[in-house]
């Protein structure tokens, strides 16, 4: 978000337009072949779209690959291995792709390939185009920052937390960067940066950050 980090924190919201690649996998071997070829955007999309969707009943796993392995292939152990992948441990999407392929290859060494899924239950590879919207909301103090964070759309939390780190290639999320560099709150920033965000829905993550900010206030 670059320009948000001068003096004030400028809140952006975002909207993900989903672009379909037209490619689909009906079994694990086909899935791996396509995974090797699809765009980095497609892999990013499938490990993150969970966080940009409001959930009434969140699925068991937060990445689409793990959900498909569990619900459609019926391969629970593969699903668990895929779900355990933490995108924040990787500096770019190509490394995530390599890790996904490694997980599937390891799985196939121990288990026979499962049967193909039923028509309509294939894995459909999509990508997203992010449209970033300035909200006009800005914070220069911790109090304002916390207040806006309560009101802002969940897509803002997604954008500043998840998208900032992986897609925009920043070392940390925008929130902890601002708290550290602009408000001189390194402890608070470090606590936020230390969250394991893949274990939360975006709304849960918002609540957790707000709780920390309120404690600090």
């Amino acid at each position: 978000m670059g320009n948000a980090m001068a003096e004030s924190f400028k809140f952006f919201e975002c909207y993900a337009l989903i672009r379909m690649t037209g490619r689909k996998a009906s079994d694990i071997l086909e899935f791996m072949e396509i995974l090797k070829q699809v765009s980095a955007e497609s892999i990013f999309h499938h490990v993150h779209q969970y966080f940009l969707k409001p959930h009434i009943s969140p699925p068991d796993f937060s990445n689409d690959f793990a959900v498909w392995a569990a619900e459609n292939l019926g391969e629970q152990n593969l699903a668990e291995a895929l779900a355990n992948l933490n995108p924040f441990e990787f500096s770019n999407v190509e490394d995530i792709r390599a890790e996904l392929i490694r997980i599937i290859t390891e799985h196939l060494k121990s288990y026979p390939p499962p049967r193909p899924v039923l028509p309509g239950k294939e894995f459909f590879f999509n990508e997203s185009i992010t449209i970033v919207v300035p909200t006009g909301l800005e914070a220069t103090q911790l109090h304002d920052f916390a207040m806006i964070l309560k009101e802002i759309d969940y897509s803002s939390i997604y954008f500043h937390f998840y998208e900032a780190r992986l897609r925009l290639g920043k070392e940390r999320d925008d929130f902890s960067h601002f708290l550290d560099e602009c408000l001189d709150c390194p402890t608070l920033a470090a606590r936020i940066k230390s969250f394991d965000p893949y274990m939360y829905t975006t709304e849960d993550l918002r609540a957790k950050i707000i709780k920390l900010l309120e404690e600090a206030l």
Binding site: L17, I129, T130, L168
Partner: peptide, 21 residues
């Protein structure tokens, strides 16, 4: 409505994956 406007916007910014308004 958001969908239609975003597609229109995206096609006016061909090949951009992140579009700042």
């Amino acid at each position: 409505i958001e969908n239609y406007l975003s597609m229109w916007t995206a096609l006016e910014h061909k090949d951009q994956k992140v579009i700042y308004l």
